[in-house]
């Protein structure tokens, strides 16, 4: 067994520098690497490019890095529900590259899987396609999209073991599995870290080969963005 564990969040983030490109897992606030983000805030590094489906809310998730003006550029598919983000974007302080969600996922997966580029129909005929190669397949136009290149990927799983194997829960899975192994260094944080041999190999979602460093998060707030319930009759 190759042990991927690190003893602390500080050790997990060793090597992060200003100007780097990070992939950050999560959809909304679900499945975000809370502990890694909190530590990135502490490091004070700036001029970051973040690849993440969303940008958190004003006071949680990537919103915390935006508050400290640590992010130079966001690559996302949906950035609503964040006033500070909107302010920085409209004032020109923050560069924003909005891309279709499926393309975002596939550009991560392509990086993970060693595929430099691929064709997709998403965005054809829109401003997303501007400047991109268009090619017809089966009579339908597609645009050329490239794999991302990132220095670190920060992902969050439900359970993990010393070998770096990961299991996700519910829709907190989202972008995390496709970002694992898609950057030079992948840091996985988990709610529960167990010894190798504890998890059933049949149930592993992401094998440890895609994870460079793994640690158990100190605590998880798991904030809910839109609490919607029904009343018992």
């Amino acid at each position: 067994m190759i042990n991927r564990t690190v003893s602390s969040v500080e050790e997990a983030l060793e090597g992060v520098k200003s100007g780097m490109t990070f992939m950050v897992g999560g959809f909304g606030l679900s499945g975000i690497p809370e502990n890694s983000i909190a530590q990135l805030v502490k490091t004070g590094i700036t001029d970051l490019t973040c690849i993440s489906n969303n940008a958190g809310v004003d006071d949680f998730g990537l919103g915390l890095l935006l508050q400290g003006k640590q992010i130079k550029k966001m690559i996302s598919s949906y950035v609503g529900e964040n006033d500070e983000f909107e302010r920085q974007m409209l004032s020109g302080e923050l560069e924003v590259d909005l891309i279709p969600q499926g393309t975002l996922a596939e550009r991560c997966r392509a990086a993970q899987a060693g595929i430099p580029a691929f064709f997709t129909p998403a965005g054809y005929g829109t401003e997303v396609a501007e400047g991109k190669e268009v090619r017809d397949f089966n009579g339908k136009p597609h645009i050329l999209e490239h794999a991302f290149q990132a220095d670190f990927a920060f992902v969050k799983a439900w359970k993990g073991d010393e070998a770096g194997n990961l299991i996700f829960k519910g829709t907190a899975r989202n972008f995390n599995p496709v970002m694992a192994g898609a950057a030079t260094i992948t840091v996985a944080e988990v709610e529960e870290l167990v010894p190798a041999g504890t998890l059933d190999p049949n149930q592993i979602h992401i094998p440890g080969i895609f994870v460079k460093r793994i640690f158990q998060g100190a605590k998880y707030e798991k904030r809910i963005e839109q609490r919607t319930v029904r009343q018992k009759a």
Binding site: W158, Q226, T228
Partner: peptide
Amino acid sequence: GPFPFDGEEDADVINAGKQTI
């Protein structure tokens, strides 16, 4: 499925509108 009953919502189970489901 439908929205959860009050008290049974799970931060790890949401829809694309980020609502608990």
